[in-house]
Design a protein around this nucleic acid. Structure first.
Length: 207
DNA sequence: TATGCGATATACT
DNA sequence: GTATATCGCATAA
């Protein structure tokens, strides 16, 4: 199946099949490749946890574009995260790449992630993965299907079906019961599960 | 392990 | 103007 067609399906269908695939970021500094070990599906207009739930905006426009492109955005004032856009143009579905194992460009990844004491932590979590790959908003909209592009995805060794586990998504408060997080069972690079922390409203914080 | 906090783009009032 | 966000890290215990 051509890579483009691979992405022209629903996010929950695509997500588990992305496990084991290789994501490579190329820049003047060099390139880093990770083997994907954890993902989450976000199903656009039918998913209240999706950035695309309330329709198209300047921020999420890429999610409504053609499949197989990268939706890169800035979150919490200091982190980047990357999604692979799914479904035909106009739909707004995507798969968040949450974690991976660095399999190439280890020295460069380490230099970008000085806080990591062990290599398994280099891309363990969406913000860490983005940092290890050196992602910035300039890569928003990049075509993942173009070989040797700035940010590309390619098939890897398939992960054995019995090693693929699913569960609730991390950090989402809406639709917290839908098992749309998929990961490789037992892999040390998978991020620890954390339920969405109910955030106190400002009005409760006194003065 | 558990909790607090940072630091900013974006969307909504 | 203001609340919230697909989070990471230091600190405490």
């Amino acid at each position: 199946m051509p890579l483009r067609e691979f992405f022209t399906r629903t996010a929950p269908d695509v997500a588990p099949e992305l496990l084991g695939c290789l994501l490579t970021a190329r820049s003047e500094e060099g390139s880093v490749t990770v083997r994907i070990t954890e993902v989450e599906a976000y199903a656009g207009a039918r998913d209240p946890a999706s950035h695309a739930y309330r329709g198209k905006t300047a921020r999420n426009a890429v999610m409504f574009g053609p499949p197989g492109h990268a939706y890169v955005y800035f979150i919490y004032g200091l982190h980047y995260a990357v999604n692979a856009v799914c479904m035909p143009e106009g739909t707004g579905e995507g798969v968040l790449i949450r974690a991976g194992e660095v399999v190439d460009g280890l020295p460069l990844a380490r230099s970008r992630r000085v806080a990591s004491r062990v290599d398994a932590d280099l891309a363990r979590g969406p913000g860490r993965l983005a940092t290890a790959l050196g992602l910035t908003r300039e890569l928003n909209g990049t075509d993942l299907c173009e070989s040797l592009g700035a940010l590309t995805l390619e098939p890897g060794k398939p992960v054995a079906g019995e090693l693929i586990r699913s569960g609730p998504r991390v950090g989402v408060s809406q639709a917290a019961d839908v098992p749309w997080r998929f990961h490789v069972h037992g892999d040390p690079t998978v991020s620890p599960y954390r339920r969405a922390k109910p955030r106190k409203s400002a009005s409760d914080q006194g003065v």
